[in-house]
Design a protein around this nucleic acid. Structure first.
Length: 1056
RNA sequence: CGGCGCGAAGCUCAGAUGGCCGAGCACUCGGCUGAUAACCGAGAGGCCGGAGGUUCGAGUCCUCCCGCGCCGACCA
């Protein structure tokens, strides 16, 4: 017994102490940590630590370098970061090279708008300076995006991201186009695009705005070509006699009469019923059955006299529509009956083919220009009927017309020049602008007797966003990549022409064994080899490949990679691997600016001559490549050029919108380059929605701005949101949801804090207790930890991140906070600091804190690192290092560091996931039963509280009566029970009578729990009740356990 | 309209092979005041989007419908 004065009880209690703050203050602490990471070169340290390990490559899909990032972009990058970090912690060498998509229309538009504000126009600038402005804009945008991504805690090669506008990338893009050419996939064709005849430029859908416009609405008849067998059969069906003198006409309707000279066909819907009706002058017209009345009314069929007088036909039905006698229907037949019949053009000596198409509607407007905007057409379909159910088809002047025309092998005929004037081949109207020609064409048709009706028609029509003039649809020459052409056999340089295919050698690195018969076939084969997460991705990809038309890679733009093709004066197009590689080498040195700066001659190999005519005068193609082609090239341009990466990637991870986008274009390039998919697995995530499940739009005001939120609440909260939601589905986000996430964060943080706080002064090397010597509940906690490690790592492997969240969250809330921590508090606080009982718990806590930091690191990248540096081993090592440094600097004042000096990584992100020990299942099972009993006890305590028998659970003494196996179990833990239940005393007794029949599980046996006041008095130190209190002279207010602990503390030198 | 997906407590999610729908958070109430802008407990809260069908029995299987999202763009 000490001769010193008794200790002050309060000071002998070991309360938690840690530098790990309860309040995270992420808004400030995260930037500070980012700075430290940058200073220590964390990403580089990680790379070095994984050198020589098996690689795992996530290939970044480049976000568009236009505007600031939005929530979806943030989520995408966070998910990628979680993948990379988790694979790194599994031990892989998993570098991350971020990228940016820098070319494309939105940047052009942005630059144009900026010019607008300065009162300038695109045409005021040279192409070179316009492109320079685009380049600068992209550079600025990607810089600010980089800052935002870094702020989210995403680790990667930010100093050297890949840019689709870099020299090498642009060169590689051109080279890859050359691969497609070489394999014979590239051909030149035509395709209709929006065209502004005023600005003489192609327009994107986004550059078109719909305005009110009045067009001539005309009903025109196309005669059946009677000479074929099929036509005769039809005639017999309708008229009963193939020699009947009456002629059959197909009635079409259009609001763009100027496209009539380009008519090559008539589309009908195979689902609709059509009727042959009696028309004027003994003619027979074919129209959709449902529109017979409408057409009759418009065209004055039936009883023209009544139409003109407007006199009601019958008293019973005075409505205006009733004035028309429905014309006599001669026959009805499905639309499919008409397929491939031939009509004659309404006035030209040319056939017009009958085709089947689902785009044909009964609402009218199934017309070249307007049908493209489906929503618009749908809206109007409801408002009223128009048309005939037969659609005038000019493949050179409409999207649907183009598609159906292609399917039926029609020409993409477009006798209209850049200025919107008919070319010489158009009889009667050559040289006229199409809009000027409209009235003339109507009159001409009337004169030929082909016109049944014409009127003015007000509707919404696409206009140019810049000059506000109405636009037209016009087919222009385009480069296509064929999906069905078989890869060509090796051949010498051969150029492409309008319908030809370029042919050349296979490249060296092409995998001929898996060479696909065609891109489509290759794609379908590769889809089966790729792992899709979620699995339905394969279905979606497969379905998409099946019906896809050829890939049009031409864009009539300037901000992109030029299509490296030359045209000889003789009309021959030159594109071969040799010429393209030559151009690419120039791009490699000078970027694609060279294309606009240099003459064709300077871009071709010296002395190059046209293979067709031997000429040496060339012009350059003015189209650029589709930006999807750009980004599709990334696997080759990036994976094969950055050190540490490799082709193919292990995984691509993007939103579901990329099936048709990057996943597809990457697959195409992969097939052309290597005959394989560029990815082994494809993970897709959903869209970000608001609380109501609506898509987020800046304009709708429901968008969560990531930078703002991060500044306020921290990136870790946003990262936890990403992890807590199931990304495979659409993800909802709102202030409420984020607030729930912040709750979870606080719980996890507090849990870690409790562990760290109770490790104050714990030196793992010196103080750890061997597993076999630990208290059983501590071993239980470690067994639970092992189970957590197993599950969490498994979930990380499966990209099942929200399961990671679930198991960690459950571990923190239930296993630790509600059970383990609550129970061991007594031991941690009241036992002597160095007692084995306390060190046993600390040993478990140390493992737990360490494992939590590692398991959380991919998700809570900042907080996990903060936990990490508060771990005893890490603190010790850091202090050791600091000490060595001080020593080296001649600072003798510093005291030697005590404790472990084992190496610990300076950041958790260099560390690896913990390895689970074999889980002791029997121990876990025993404790599940104990916790089952605990639940019953807790419930009874609650009852006792409600009757004011007790307040704190330590006021209680619990009486348990049971029998059988349960009694045996509890009896084995007899002395532990009061701690497990957190009560002062437990009285266990065997139930008088065993239950019968034997219930399932031990908890079903007889178990009665009663609660009373604890015996004795409350110990001033540990707050447990004990009859011992008062018996110690030195510490009269304290229980027997505390007397013992105090003696130990005094022996060790008093209160800390 | 076509392809794909989703719809379960206020929120985020578990609910292989059909068998009384669970957890955490939030909420309400209570306890504690030695994790304290913490901690512990209890309670309440679900026509499992709707309607049919198969079945002794359906959140789960089938059909149809409704709502929402992505894709079908020279958007990325």
């Amino acid at each position: 017994m000490s001769t010193q004065a008794p200790l002050e009880l309060k000071k002998t209690v070991n309360l938690p102490k840690t530098a790990f703050a309860q309040k995270a203050n992420l808004g400030q602490s995260e930037p500070a940590r980012l700075k430290r990471w940058a200073e220590m070169g964390l990403y580089e340290l990680i790379r070095r630590s994984r050198r020589g390990r098996e690689r795992f490559i996530l290939h970044d899909g480049p976000p568009y370098a236009n505007a600031d990032i939005h929530l979806g972009t943030a989520m995408n990058k966070i998910l990628k970061d979680i993948v990379v970090k988790s694979r790194t912690m599994m031990g892989y060498d998993s570098p991350y090279v971020p990228g940016y998509d820098c070319h494309g229309l939105p940047i052009e538009q942005h630059v144009e708008r900026a010019l607008d504000k300065k009162g300038k126009k695109k045409s005021d600038l040279s192409t070179e300076s316009f492109r320079r402005a685009c380049r600068e804009h992209a550079a600025g945008a990607l810089k600010s995006q980089t800052r935002d991504f870094q702020r989210l805690g995403i680790l990667g090669l930010w100093e050297d991201p890949y840019l689709t506008m870099s020299n090498h990338y642009e060169a590689e893009t051109a080279r890859q186009f050359g691969r497609f050419v070489e394999r014979g996939y590239v051909y030149k064709g035509a395709r209709p695009v929006y065209w502004c005849i005023h600005d003489q430029t192609a327009l994107a859908e986004a550059e078109v705005e719909y305005r009110e416009h009045t067009s001539p609405s005309v009903y025109v008849k196309f005669p059946l070509a009677e000479d074929s067998l099929e036509a005769k059969t039809l005639k017999r069906e309708i008229l009963g006699d193939e020699d009947d003198p009456r002629r059959i006409f197909f009635l079409i309707w259009t609001t763009t009469p100027w496209t009539l000279p380009s008519n090559l066909g008539i589309a009908v819907n195979p689902q609709f019923e059509y009727a042959a009706i009696e028309g004027k002058d003994g003619e027979v017209y074919v129209v959709a059955s449902e529109l017979v009345t409408h057409v009759a009314q418009k065209c004055g069929l039936g009883r023209p006299a009544d139409l003109t007088t407007g006199e009601p036909r019958g008293q019973s039905d005075p409505s205006p529509s009733a004035v028309v006698w429905p014309p006599k229907v001669l026959a009805r037949f499905p639309g499919s009956r008409l397929e491939r019949l031939e009509a004659r053009h309404a006035w030209l000596d040319r056939p017009s083919l009958l085709m089947l198409g689902d785009h044909v509607t009964l609402g009218g407007e199934a017309d070249a220009e307007t049908e493209l905007d489906l929503k618009d057409a749908r809206d109007r379909r409801v408002t009223g009927k128009a048309g005939t159910g037969l659609v005038h088809t000019a493949p050179g002047h409409g999207h649907d017309d183009f598609v159906i025309g292609k399917a039926y092998g029609l020409d993409i005929y477009c006798p209209v020049d850049n200025a919107g004037r008919f070319t010489q081949e158009v009889e009667h109207f050559a040289g006229l602008s199409v809009f000027e020609a409209n009235p003339g064409i109507v009159e001409f048709a009337r004169g030929r007797g082909a016109l049944l009706f014409a009127e003015e028609y007000a509707h919404r029509y696409p206009h140019c966003w810049r000059c506000k003039n109405p636009v037209i649809f016009r087919a222009t020459p385009q480069w296509f990549i064929s999906l069905d052409a078989a890869a060509a056999a090796p051949a010498a340089d051969v150029e492409t022409d309008d319908d030809g295919r370029a042919r050349s050698n296979f490249t060296d690195n092409y995998n001929e064994e898996v060479a696909p018969a065609s891109l489509r076939a290759g794609a379908l084969r590769e889809i089966e080899r790729v792992r899709w997460v979620p699995a339905w991705g394969a279905d979606r990809m497969r379905n998409m490949q099946k019906g896809r038309p050829d890939w049009c890679v031409s864009r009539q733009r300037v901000w992109g990679v030029p299509i490296p093709v030359f045209y000889c004066a003789c009309g021959e197009a030159t594109a071969s691997r040799a010429t393209i590689d030559h151009v690419a080498d120039v791009f490699e040195r000078e970027t694609t600016d060279a294309w606009y700066r240099r003459e064709a001659k300077e871009l071709l190999p010296e002395g190059f001559r046209c293979p067709a005519c031997g000429g040496d005068e060339f012009t350059k193609e003015s189209d650029i490549l589709d930006v999807w082609f750009d980004s599709g090239v990334s696997s080759v341009a990036v994976l094969e050029s950055y050190e540490g990466l490799r082709w193919p990637a292990d995984v691509y991870l993007e939103g579901g919108d990329q099936f048709r986008g990057w996943f597809n274009s990457s697959l195409m390039v992969g097939l052309a380059a290597h005959g394989r998919a560029p990815y082994r697995a494809v993970v897709t995530h959903g869209w970000t929605l608001d609380a109501q499940g609506r898509a987020m739009h800046k304009s709708a005001g429901n968008a969560v701005a990531p930078e703002e939120f991060v500044k306020e609440s921290g990136a870790d909260i946003l990262r936890l949101w990403v992890t807590s939601s199931d990304y495979r589905e659409d993800m909802r986000c709102s202030p409420e949801i984020l607030s729930r996430v912040a709750d979870s964060y606080r719980k996890i943080r507090n849990t870690a804090r409790f562990a760290l706080g109770n490790l104050d002064g714990f030196d793992p090397e010196r103080d750890s207790v061997a597993l076999g010597d630990m208290r059983e509940i501590d071993r239980w906690a470690l067994a639970e930890l092992d189970r957590l490690i197993e599950r969490a790592v498994e979930a990380y492997k499966a990209y099942d991140f929200h399961s990671v969240f679930r198991v960690i969250d459950a571990f923190c809330t239930v296993t630790l906070s509600a059970r383990y921590f609550d129970i061991i508090k007594d031991r941690l606080y009241t036992y002597a600091p160095r007692s084995e009982a306390r060190r046993s718990a600390q040993t478990a806590l140390n493992h737990i804190a360490d494992a939590l930091a590692r398991l959380l690191a991919p998700v809570l990248s900042f907080t996990a690192d903060e936990i990490w540096e508060n771990l005893p081993e890490v603190k010790a090592w850091n202090a050791f290092v600091a000490d060595k440094e001080a020593e080296a600097a001649g600072d003798k004042e510093r005291s030697a560091v005590t404790g472990g000096t084992g190496w610990m990584p300076p950041s958790v992100h260099i560390a690896e996931f913990p390895v689970a020990q074999k889980v002791d299942e029997q121990l876990l099972e025993r404790w599940e039963h104990l916790f089952g009993v605990r639940d019953v006890v807790l419930h009874q305590l609650e009852v006792a509280r409600s009757t004011k028998t007790i307040g704190s659970s330590l006021d209680a003494k619990v009486y348990i009566e049971t029998e059988g196996k349960l009694y045996d179990l509890l009896s084995h833990y007899r002395d532990e029970l009061r701690f497990i239940f957190i009560v002062s005393q437990v009285h266990l007794s065997r139930a008088a009578k065993p239950s019968e029949p034997p219930p399932k599980g031990m908890l079903g046996t007889v178990l009665s729990v009663a609660v009373g006041r604890a015996d004795g008095q409350k110990c001033d130190r540990c707050w447990n009740y004990s009859t011992f209190v008062g018996q110690s002279n030195r510490y009269p207010t304290v229980c027997e356990r505390c007397v013992e602990a105090l003696a130990e503390i005094e022996a060790e030198g008093g209160a800390r």
